[in-house]
């Protein structure tokens, strides 16, 4: 007897899925085809490449960490409380998603810049300025990438079975203990997925970074900035840099994914 669904992919899904995949992958192939393979080694050995890559990985990872620390609690508030301002809060948190990143960078200046609301006070009391530092890169990336984490985690929290939390509460656990011991393990895969999305977005961040952190090799020049500037003078170098960024990010994501898949497989 045939099962109703069968095992194949229905045609109305298969065709758009195939077209969609091509649409996403072909530009990537374009980069691969146009890459200057003959002198790839020499171009990769240029000191600026490793420097920009290290800075990118470091700042994206720090931005993801900051997003986890600040974003998971936001997601919990959005998913588990019934405060009246919740929908307003959700809209506000997602503003960086719709804001052109360059405008986000200018907005960061207006708050954290030397002449900014908070930055001016910081500068006058301690002499510290944030723009044009690696910290500024992390802040810009966090600003742009954190909403991705918040939205994913909120979705995971809503999908999680709240009865486990209720059970914990009836057994006498307070909300903080429940969050740590029940909720977090329950939505860990959702948090991981959100963190990946957040990391990927931070790694590719360009507009807010170049605006707020500027561009200086070794301090604030991440890979996307290096790619953009290389494009002005040496398009082949830009292609090489793009490929490096793509390979490293894909490798990282695949590695992590394998790890989670095996872990969640073991748990099930």
């Amino acid at each position: 007897m045939r099962r109703p669904g069968g095992s194949g992919v229905p045609l109305p899904l298969l065709v758009p899925a195939a077209i969609g995949t091509l649409f996403l992958v072909l530009p990537l192939l374009g980069l691969v085809v146009r890459a200057p393979w003959s002198d790839l080694g020499a171009r990769l050995a240029e000191p600026g490449v490793g420097q920009a890559l290290r800075l990118s990985l470091l700042s994206a990872t720090l931005a993801t960490t900051a997003s986890l620390v600040l974003g998971v609690p936001i997601a919990w508030v959005l998913a588990r409380t019934r405060t009246r301002g919740r929908s307003v809060l959700r809209a506000l948190v997602t503003v960086p998603l719709v804001l052109p990143p360059v405008v986000g960078g200018v907005a960061l200046f207006l708050v954290l810049g030397r002449q900014g609301i908070v930055g001016r006070w910081l500068f006058e009391t301690t002499g510290v300025t944030i723009p044009f530092t690696t910290l500024a890169v992390v802040i810009a990336e966090t600003f742009v990438a954190m909403p991705f984490l918040v939205i994913s985690v909120e979705g995971a929290l809503r999908a999680a079975d709240a009865r486990f939390e209720d059970a914990a509460a009836t057994l006498g656990a307070d909300r903080w203990t429940t969050f740590r011991r029940v909720t977090l393990p329950l939505v860990a895969p959702g948090i991981a997925a959100g963190a990946v999305l957040c990391w990927a977005r931070a790694l590719g961040e360009f507009g807010a970074t170049i605006t707020f952190a500027g561009n200086f090799p070794g301090t604030t020049q991440t890979m996307p900035l290096a790619v953009y500037l290389a494009l002005q003078s040496d398009p082949e170098a830009a292609i090489v840099l793009s490929l490096v960024l793509l390979v490293v990010s894909l490798a990282t994501l695949l590695l992590l994914r394998d790890r989670w898949l095996t872990r969640s497989g073991a748990a099930a």
Binding site: F132, F216, P217
Partner: peptide
């Protein structure tokens, strides 16, 4: 402290 991507960015 920064090498801007174009002259308008430097001016900003």
């Amino acid at each position: 402290d920064t090498q801007e991507e174009d002259v308008k960015a430097a001016l900003t």
